[in-house]
Amino acid sequence: MDPLIFGFLLSDGLISGALYALVALALVLVFAVTRVILIPMGEWVVFAPLTQAVLLEGRLPGTVWLSAGLLLVWAVLDRRRGRTPLLLALAAALVVAAGYLGLAVPALAPLVAILVVLPLGPANFRLFFEPLPGATVLVYLILAVGLHFVYKGLGLAFFGPEQFGLPALLPGEASVFGLPVPRQGVLMVVAAGALMAALYLFFARSLFGKALRAAAVNRIGARLSGISVREAGRVAFLLATGIGALAGVLVAPLSNASYEMGFLLGLKGFVAAIVAGLSSYPLAVAGGVLVGVLESFSSFFASAYKEAIVFALLLPVLAWRSVSSLALEEEE
């Protein structure tokens, strides 16, 4: 193969691989702490750049009201919990204020978009998953699929069916090993790496991160240590939405954004998370890169089958996992 084409495909694959790796990390984190397979994750990822795009068009996006509204419902549900409802109402006001700020100062729109999408995760956890503590993975999955349909519909209502192009945060091209690569792509990969490093430090060094890990591996042990499993769930959802929204804002200038792209994006992140057995963070990153590179090369060689090839990756992975986990199940 022409080394130049190979280089382009590889860099393309690594850039989308960084996106899938981040989505996979978020999915693994949420699953480890709460046992929720977060299907609507993809919708939330595209909500961030779509919110940004609508702000740049000079309109206030529906996500602002959605976010603020969910926070207010949460405040009502937790009305008897001391200062919590007040803080939640304040957060709702902050989201609306941020929305207007984004209208006034277009340069802040990407940041505002992340801020607006951020409450969706924890608020959905509080409203829909927390009332069912200890439900089975299947019940949570059904709930998550339901939410996915709701958010897909909301996406169409808020943003319409068309694709939005977004200006690059870092315009122009950089030369990487003699290969012209959009600066935005470099930013995506570097930001993903920095975010992963930050997450690693958080989980390995800070006691809050360790508490989150503790809540994931042993719920009773966590509660005995004074760690609230509910709070851990909210934090996991918050981190996941934050990671997803940031990834969405970073990647959208390279690929455009439309409301229906979320599902496929989330699904590919999910494939990467499955490669990691929904449990290993490093493997989730590797899975994401693998999915990205595979997608990039298959879109060149067999573009009609590009999605099929990515999802076919599940077959050998699942076969391998089911063979290698037989021994484990016998132990339990």
């Binding site: 360790k210 503790a214 591996v217 042993n218 009773i220």
Partner: peptide, 12 residues
């Protein structure tokens, strides 16, 4: 409480 099954974080 020190739980009967200890409930430690085994991987830590």
């Amino acid at each position: 409480l020190v739980h009967e099954r200890r409930q430690l974080f085994g991987e830590m």
